[in-house]
Design a protein around this nucleic acid. Sequence first.
DNA 1: TCTGGGGTCCTAGGACCC
DNA 2: TCTGGGGTCCTAGGACCC
Length: 411
Amino acid sequence: MKKIIVHIDMDAFFASVEQALNPLLKGKPVFVSGNTARDSVIAACSYEAKKYGVKSGMSVYEGLNLCPNAVIVKGNPERYIDTSKRIFNILQTFTEKVELYSIDEGFLEITLDDDSYENLEKLGLSIKKAIYEETSLTCSAGISCNKTVAKIASDLCKPDGIMIVKEEQIPEFMENLPVEKVPGIGPRMAESLTLMGIEFCGQVRKIPVSLFKKKFGIKGEEIWYLCQGFGDTSVTVQSPQPKSFGHSYTLMEDTDDIDLLLSVLCRLSHQVGMRMRQEDYCGNVIVLTLRYSDFTSFTKRKTYPFWFNDDQTIFRNASSIMIEECFKKIRLIGVSVLGIQRKYQMSIFRNEKREKMLKAMDSINKIYGRDTIFPCLMLYEKMKYNPVKKTHAFMFGELKKISTLIPEQPV
DNA sequence: TCTGGGGTCCTAGGACCC
DNA sequence: TCTGGGGTCCTAGGACCC
């Protein structure tokens, strides 16, 4: 019996879903842009676009310079989540041990009697076939004895490929592998390694691990082993407890309009609170992130002696931090809650009236759709960018004097 | 018309306690 | 008066991943 790890990685996932749904997009370079105010970044692009050197994460502007005839499609997150669920259901027909690594990636742990190359290939092809039959989407499969090598392998055989690296082949496989192909080595680390004259994983082996540890700390030791093709062999079936809940937003344009900034912060706090309540978590740390027009960023965090998951506590405390830091035009606002615990395990900050109100609000939004009812401070943003839409609001205070609502005393 | 949004993990410095 | 050191928690920032 031999335990093997299969890494399945969907090919250009968001773009492929769009192409599968819309025949007019097939065979064309497609950019899927985020669902954001400034549609400025490519969240995913089709292989036809990749040929021109376009990559996800690139600005649309840069992408269009490389590939002027690309079709830009606005992302449909619900559609991708739904497709992802269907894919993972298929994976679960092959083994109970499936780790959902991201929306378009997963690890499978499978134990086989016969781990011959032919048998592994047969397994990989049957997974690929099952996914294609259900979704019309292609994926790449990397098969090895640990997650790191399986993941590198699936990346190398993209798109629509299959690559098997048996345990005894790992040293040879890693020898001439560029270091930046190793998950965990990002642009910064790759640059540091280049400065040391290291381009390939094989070169790392010749350097004592102690030197790596001295130079880069724990991370250095870790990447030394990763470059030898060592890696995690355990597939985690249960998704771990979240460590944080956060939302951020890049504004339509940089602004110092405090009413707008507060309105956006209120919306973000509302989104964070709603998700925490939905999943039954609370937290006791608030982190506010601001990015200014010059792209410098700033984060400030505060720990509280009580736990919470209500919009108002998040908003009031985050806004009291924000007001002190609004001295130049702001590009992005973000708010996160950390110190996450299961709600029932904590003595949560209690305010019966507020709890009832939130419960009612969450139920209404669940039944009648998102944002049927929301804190009235959010109206300012909504009215500014979508003045026609009819809205209902509940009152945190008076709408017309938003900036005077900032807490005299944070809760 | 440069540079999204959701996360996790690590580090280094400071406060504070014993 | 000055001075040690270990442990823990908090904070800000950065690297990395998808």
